[in-house]
Design a protein around this nucleic acid. Structure first.
Length: 484
RNA sequence: GUCGGCGUAGUUCAAUGGUAGAACGGGGGACUCAUAAGCCUCAAACAAUGGUCCGAUUCCAUUCGUCGACACCA
């Protein structure tokens, strides 16, 4: 267990998508959530290191590049800017570190990591038989086979080909991992995911291969001291979480954010094993401290919980939403309408309903009605209150329950609407001006607090509201226009 | 097949061993500061069966439904 009491530094990272991935709502969801945590911590006075980036090695990339007849490096260089554009489009804080697994430093650091595992005696060479379908001309895994045959070519027999690869002694770390889970019961959020990974580890671990023959697939980080092999993609990819910090040379930064901080990794549920078991074993092997918290997201599905897929045509491009409704509308939906840790359905109809109800009629309208009264009746702007963030809101964010945090904000919005109705300052102003002004000021103060709570969630909107209150003015146009 | 999660109003969620809460959507009403917004109000749910208990939506078992894990899909 780490001492987490006095560090004022905070590290958070998303998973790295493949550089050529179609960036969909699921990616946006993870980015937005991590971004909220990063902004929140910054507002709470932490120095924050926020990491994301692109995974650029491996067979898939290599093949795509070959199809297009270009060098893999050229191919990934063509895609990397898309990703960087995308994260801006979904409103990620500008203060973000972007690692590419083809960065010279990352490559070198991944090799250093390898050497440490090797020194620990955890890397060894082994021949194993890969299963190969001549029909597909591809390696097959057991889970891809049906009755030991390739489902696409059931009349061909699967060939076994000897290949010598490096392996990582995962099996050695079963106890270390189980101990880690016992010592850090909140290491994986939500806790049923910890149960899931614990069950997996308890069933026993097999060593896994961590390299490929360069003659077959050269697009990877060269294995130190063996130019015939390259690292298997994800071995180098996982190390990005620390190579981005400048590890191993930049000891100070690594110490600051990883060792004495509380490093947080966001990932989708399909990444549970890699992040909470394999990567943790790799860290132990290399003699480095484990991740503090791994937050596991569910997936966004289509209507009725159906998987989103191109063939069903229910894939949603978050950029389309942003261009029609704005960044904060997308963020709002991700944060409050999607379950923080479970699969959630997404439909455009639902999105619009929720937008109209909560952003246009709720928040936006409240700002207009309060500020209309304030700007016409108060002679000067209210005294800007100290940040008065309620504890339950903080607790919700600290436990990664961003939906609960958003619920708290919207409960306050509802209370303010009710307060206007019951105290009716717009009426009172005619009979008891002093009292009415007192109420209007209180409304503005509480609205300012709402803006403060919104700062990590809907940063643009939060700023707009704060400005309006500081100027004691009306919004020039509705914050969120109703959509019909 | 083995293991695990889940199954609450039309929808998405919440709480709880003792009258089941909310939001959105739907019906009705009074108001007017506001984005025909807001407020009040009405209708609306504990998958099924059995067990433990004075009492179960909550605990247990079974069934059904659903999602996931069961390794190299990073």
């Amino acid at each position: 267990m780490k001492n987490e009491s006095h560090s004022n530094n905070f590290y958070i990272t998303t998973t790295l998508p493949y550089v050529n991935a179609d960036l969909h709502l699921g990616h946006a969801l993870e980015f937005v959530r991590a971004d909220v945590i990063a902004r929140y911590k910054k507002l709470m006075g932490y120095e924050v290191f926020f990491n994301t980036g692109t995974d650029e090695h491996g067979l898939k990339i290599f093949k795509k590049a070959a199809e297009q007849g270009i060098e893999p490096q050229k191919y990934v260089d063509g895609f990397a800017p898309n990703f960087q554009k995308f994260i801006k489009e979904v409103g990620m804080t500008s203060d973000i570190h972007i690692v590419r697994t083809t960065d010279a430093h990352h490559i070198k650091a991944a090799q250093e990591f390898w050497k440490l595992c090797e020194k620990a005696g955890d890397i060894y060479k082994k021949t194993y038989k890969i299963k190969y379908c001549v029909g597909c001309e591809l390696e097959k895994t057991d889970s891809e086979l049906v009755d030991g045959k390739c489902p696409l070519h059931p009349n061909l027999t699967i060939e076994l080909i000897d290949e010598e690869n490096y392996f990582f002694r995962f099996s050695k770390y079963q106890k270390a991992l189980l101990d880690l889970y016992v010592a850090n019961p909140k290491m994986v959020v939500p806790d049923n995911r910890l149960r899931e990974i614990r069950a997996f580890v308890e069933r026993g671990l097999e060593d896994f291969s961590i390299s490929r023959l360069a003659s077959k697939m050269p697009w990877g980080v060269p294995v130190p001291g063996d130019d015939k092999q390259v690292m298997y993609v994800w071995f180098d990819a996982l190390t990005n979480y620390i190579t981005t910090l400048g590890w191993p040379e930049n000891k100070e930064q690594f110490e600051k954010f990883w060792v004495s901080g509380t490093p947080v990794q966001y990932c989708g549920k399909d990444n549970l094993r890699q992040q909470s078991a394999m990567w943790q074993a790799m860290l132990v092997s290399a003699g480095l401290p484990p991740t503090h918290t791994i937050v596991v997201d569910g997936f966004v599905t289509g209507a009725g919980g159906v998987k989103m897929s191109k063939s069903l045509g229910n894939v949603v491009d978050p950029r389309d939403i942003v261009s029609e409704y704005g960044i904060d509308a997308l963020r709002y939906f991700v944060l409050r309408e999607l379950q923080p840790f479970e699969d959630s359905p997404f439909t455009l109809e639902q999105f619009k309903l929720s937008y109209n109800a909560n952003l246009a009629n709720g928040l936006g309208n409240l700002v207009s009605r309060v500020m209309k009264m304030a700007s016409t009746n108060l002679v000067e702007p209210i005294k800007i209150p100290e940040n008065n963030i309620p504890q339950n809101y903080k607790d919700a964010i600290e436990s990664f329950d961003l939906k609960k945090a958003a619920d708290i904000v919207w409960a306050e919005i509802g209370e303010l609407d009710t307060m206007i109705q019951t105290t009716a300052p717009f009426k009172l102003i005619k009979t008891d001006k002093e009292k009415a002004i007192e109420i209007i000021s209180e409304l503005a103060v509480r609205l300012y607090n709402v803006a403060c709570m919104l700062a990590p969630l809907l940063p643009e909107t939060s700023e707009k509201i704060k400005d309006i209150i500081k100027n004691n003015s009306m919004p020039e146009k509705p914050l969120f226009m109703r959509k019909d």
